[in-house]
Each structure stands twice: as C-alpha cells, then as structure tokens.
C-alpha cells in the first residue's frame, strides 16, 4: 500500500473508486440513453424500440422548445451578469491587501455551501407578498398594494445570480492571483494609461479563466432545479424540473430520458461554442497587445 509506484498497488488504490463511477454513473447513463430510444405507450409505459421519436417530439412541440428557450435565456442572462459582476469583485479581492481577505472568501463560499434550497427560501422571504421588499416599498410609500415578485422571471433570475456568483468569484480569484501584476506595472511605467494597461495586459491573461468560469456557471444555470421550483413556482418551466416531471409524475421514461440527454447535449454544445468564441476573442486581444 505504501509504494504507490508499484503498478499493482496503484491499480488497487484507484480501482475501487473507478468501479463506483463506472457502475453508478457511466453504466446508468448508458441505460438512460438506451431508454431514450424506446417507445412510450400509455398502457405498457415503456416498450422496447429503436426510435428517435422522443427527440423528434421534443423539437416539434412548441411547448418543450419554449421550456428549452426559457432555460437557455435564464442561464445565459445569469452567466453574463455573473461575469460582469463577479469579475470586478474577484479583481478587487485579488488585488486588495486587507486583513479581512480570508473572511471575505468565507463570506463568498458560505452561501454556496448552504445549498440552493436554503438560498431559495431566503429569497422567498425577500420577495414574497408579505416579504421584506414589499414591506419596504409599502413603508416608503412607493406602492400601496404589494407587488407580485415571486413566480416571475425576475425572481428566478436573482436566485440564479446568487447561485452562480460564488463560483465565478472563486474561479476568477484563483486565475487572477496567478497573474503576474508586475506586467501591469511595466505597462504603466512605459506610459500606458491604467485602462489601456488593463485591457491589453491583464484582460488577455484573464480571458481563459473567464471562459472557464462562464462554462461552469452556464452549466449550473441550465441545470438549476431548486431555484426554478421554489422561486418560479409550479407553472414555471425549466429543463431540470421538466425532466423530473416526466419521470415522477407522468412515468414517461423514454421521453424523460430524451429530455435529460437534450439538456446535457445543449449545455455541452453551448459551452463549447462559447469557449471557441472566447478563444477567438482572446486571439484578437493578444494580437492587439502585441501590436
């Protein structure tokens, strides 16, 4: 056990964990994919088949395309705003020398670990008809009747934003702390104004980190379940709740499985596309910097 360099020891060490992943994740995913090609009949539920009809159904029914559209829209919006807000915050945190730094990092990490259900509960207290926001608005005389904030796009959006922000900040903090800021000082000494030095030196170095963070939080937004259910309500349809619904309420496994794989694929494709765009952006920025 002690000598991990012995190949057999290494296999014995890594084997059990790998076996768990293969049997409890990879194999079930294959099973699920196989089921997505089966046929659903109301009487027998699932019958063996090899058909693409579940996928075709998804892409021909406006309702499900709408669900995907809502999900894509909210995931994209929270990714963009997450980066726009998270980057300056992480930049400030990376450059600051306050002794509160580790406390601030804990304050960022803490909401993440508290979990999505608790955070959604907190936003409910803020946004509900008898919640804090309405009490403030009525108290200030800005409105006489409480406003319906819950079960709207806005409620889900603010919930998602608070879910993704810790991931953006902590990912970018790691990236920004790895950047050699003497390069920035050098650019400044050579006469570049702060803005130019930032845009041509720091930003190109940070772009790979930004794109990594964007992919992570976009995926989180696409897959959000608790936030959508609690802040969006039963009527609000996003992909993850829709997948669950097909299995738990409608017992339509083939279609639910197809939904699951559409969700996974669309997320992956969008992430890859975004990375390519950002990489190209990075290339232009690098060329700019070299000029």
């Amino acid at each position: 056990m002690a000598n991990a360099r012995n190949p057999w020891t290494a296999v014995a060490l890594v084997g059990p964990a790998l076996l768990v992943i293969l049997t409890c994740l990879v194999l079930p995913l294959f099973t699920l994919f196989r089921y997505s090609l089966n046929r659903f009949t109301p009487s027998e539920l699932m019958t063996e088949a090899l058909t693409a009809e579940n996928y075709i159904k998804f892409f021909t029914e406006p309702y499900f395309l709408g669900v995907l559209g809502t999900t894509l829209f909210l995931a994209t919006a929270s990714t963009v705003l997450g980066i726009v807000l998270g980057f300056p915050f992480a930049y400030w945190l990376a450059r600051t020398h306050t002794r509160w730094k580790s406390l601030i990092i804990i304050a960022v990490l803490f909401p993440l670990l508290v979990g999505n259900v608790v955070r959604a509960a907190g936003w409910t207290i803020f946004l509900a008809r008898d919640g804090l926001l309405n009490a403030l608005l009525v108290g200030l005389g800005l409105t006489t009747e409480p406003i319906q904030f819950m079960y709207t796009y806005g409620a889900v959006f603010i919930g998602l934003l608070s879910v993704v922000l810790p991931f953006v900040i902590l990912t970018l903090l790691g990236v920004l702390e790895g950047i050699d800021f003497t390069l920035y000082d050098a650019a400044r000494n050579l006469g570049a104004p702060p803005r130019t030095a930032f845009r041509r030196v720091i930003l190109p170095l940070a772009i790979p980190g930004i794109s990594a963070a964007a992919v992570v939080i976009f995926t989180i937004g696409m897959n959000s379940y608790a936030t959508a259910i609690i802040l969006g309500g039963a009527e609000f349809q996003m992909m993850a709740p829709a997948v669950y619904q097909q299995f738990a309420l409608l017992s339509n496994w083939p279609f639910g499985a197809a939904l699951a794989f559409i969700l996974v694929s669309v997320t992956a494709i969008a992430s890859i596309a975004a990375s390519i765009v950002l990489a190209r952006q990075n290339k232009t920025l690098t060329q700019l910097a070299e000029r």
Binding site: A17, L18, I21, L22, C24, L25, L27, P28, L29, T31, L32, Y35, T219, M222, N223, Y225, A240, V243, Y244, F247, W253, G256, A257, A260, L263, V264, T267
Partner: peptide, 21 residues
C-alpha cells in the same frame, strides 16, 4: 477526469439515471 466527471453531469440526470438503473 473520470473520477471528477460527476461534477459536470447535471445532478438531476445523475439521480434519474441511478433510479432507472
């Protein structure tokens, strides 16, 4: 990468795949 992969699979899909399995 394989051992880290559960982090990138949507949790709802992990749960459903396991249920089916």
């Amino acid at each position: 990468g394989m051992l880290l992969s559960p982090m990138i699979v949507p949790n709802i899909v992990i749960g459903i795949a396991l249920y089916v399995f």
